Simulated scan of single mutants.
Amino acid sequence: MEKNKLQAKDLINVGIFTAIYFILFFAGMMLGYIPIFIPLLGLVCPIICGIPFMLYLTKVKKFGMVTLSGIILGLLNMLIGSGVLVLIFGIVFGVAADLIMKSGKYKSWKFTLLGNGVFSLWIMGFVSRMFLTRTEFFDSLVSSYGQEYVDTLMSYTPGWMFPVLFVVTFLGGILGALLGKAVLKKHFEKAGIV
């Protein structure tokens, strides 16, 4: 049973790879300064983060590692002002992804691919504020970005876009996983993920 518990080495991997993921995610989020890119962040960010996250998943062999990444990403984004939804989504989709990958014993490519798509949905916690707390969210942007930016962003994000963005973000996670696996083929073979 002891081998199923998270060890110091596992926690170091969680810390290192989650930090790399966050830095790349944050860089991708900079595209949000251009309103047209906001709806595309769910597609772009998981692709950008795909390579390091796939490398991380070759080292994940125990339940809880992906969950911890989701929690840390949620907390970091909450601390920089992204609201509490991003933490809730980080927990929910971190646990869901962990459960999916665990059901493939962390060795199945099919479950790893699906797990990464699901994990990427934590990003929707960031985006959800535009739809679930619409008035407050857009009011808060006016002072920083100006009314023109806010009006443009509102026009790009009508209510029907909310479910579409879940699908787009999931697809971003799938594409990021495929890119990561292609780049890290040797690592996947070494980790025995088939």
Rank of each mutant, 00 (worst) to 15 (best):
S140Q: 11
M161C: 05
R129E: 14
Y156S: 06
V164R: 02
Y156V: 05
S120A: 05
P163Y: 13
E148N: 14
V164L: 04
V127R: 03
S128I: 12
G146D: 14
W160H: 03
M154E: 05
R129K: 15
L132N: 09
G173I: 04
F138D: 06
M130K: 09
V164F: 02
S140T: 11
G173H: 09
Y149F: 10
T169V: 01
S144F: 12
I123G: 01
T133R: 08
R129G: 15
W160T: 01
F137L: 10
L171E: 04
L165D: 01
P158C: 03
M130V: 06
F131Q: 01
Q147A: 15
M161S: 07
S128F: 15
F126W: 15
V164N: 04
F126Q: 06
Q147C: 10
G159L: 13
R134P: 14
F131L: 01
I123Q: 02
F137N: 12
L121R: 01
D139Y: 15
V150Y: 07
V150W: 09
T152I: 06
S140I: 09
L121P: 00
Y149Q: 05
M154C: 05
V150M: 11
W122G: 07
M154I: 03
T152H: 07
L121A: 06
L171M: 13
F131G: 01
D151E: 15
S120I: 05
G125Y: 11
W122A: 03
L121S: 07
G172A: 11
F119Y: 10
T135F: 13
L132S: 08
Y149C: 07
G125A: 08
T157A: 02
V164A: 06
G125S: 10
F170R: 02
L153P: 04
M154Q: 09
G125P: 13
E148G: 13
V167W: 05
S144P: 05
W122T: 07
T152Q: 11
F166P: 00
R129I: 13
V168K: 00
Y149H: 02
L141F: 15
E148S: 15
M124T: 03
V164K: 02
Q147W: 10
F138H: 08
D139V: 09
G146P: 06
V150H: 11
S128Q: 14
G125K: 06
E148W: 15
Q147D: 14
P163C: 13
V168D: 01
V127S: 07
M124P: 04
S143Q: 08
M130E: 11
E148H: 15
T169E: 00
W160V: 00
V142I: 15
L132V: 07
V127F: 11
F138M: 08
T135N: 11
M124E: 10
P163W: 09
L121N: 04
V127K: 03
W160D: 00
W122S: 04
E148K: 15
F131V: 00
V127D: 10
Y145A: 11
T133S: 13
S143I: 12
V168E: 00
S120P: 07
M124S: 09
L121I: 11
L171P: 02
M161D: 01
Q147V: 13
F138A: 07
T152C: 08
T169Y: 00
G146C: 12
F126M: 09
V167Q: 06
M130W: 14
